[in-house]
Design a protein around this nucleic acid. Structure first.
Lengths: 70, 70
DNA sequence: GATCTAAGTGCATTATACTGCTCTATTTTT
DNA sequence: AAAAATAGAGCAGTATAATGCACTTAGATC
């Protein structure tokens, strides 16, 4: 999963749930400014920040061995 | 996947492959000091840093919807 | 037990992620 | 098309991730 794609996935999930950036920011404890920048400028969040957002969206960050045969 | 566990997974994978911190640092382009701190003090890496390390170890960072029924 | 190798730590510097505030742009609703 | 809601951007300050260097610790090898 490419990093840009990962951020796009996060954004899509948020929209899917009908949650606004402001709501997600409030619920996750991540600054609204940070979230806005992340979703637009394709930022470089820390693991903690990403996890806070993922939590609220019912998602999780995983680190897995790549599977050659798909 | 809890964040601490994620870091532990990374470390185990490195050891599994018989790669030293120094080798991983060189191969990934991540500073040795950074890697050492990460593996010991349970740091908070950026997504880019984590991805660099994962790449070399044949792993990938994923963001997925949590599965209720396991 | 001395030597070598790999891992962990303290200190200082640099780069940048995080944040709020304000403003603009875009999208949606009425 | 005006109004309201949502998203994006500029600016500036704070916190901290990333880094190198030097030193210490732990384990293995001789």
């Amino acid at each position: 999963m490419h990093l840009d794609q990962l951020i796009i996935t996060l954004k899509h999930r948020r929209e899917e749930l009908g949650v606004t950036q402001e709501q997600l920011a409030d619920l996750s404890g991540v600054g609204l400014r940070t979230l806005k920048a992340l979703e637009s400028k394709k930022g470089n969040p820390t693991l903690v920040t990403l996890n806070k957002l993922a939590d609220v969206l019912g998602m999780e960050v995983k680190l897995v061995v790549k599977n050659i045969e798909l």
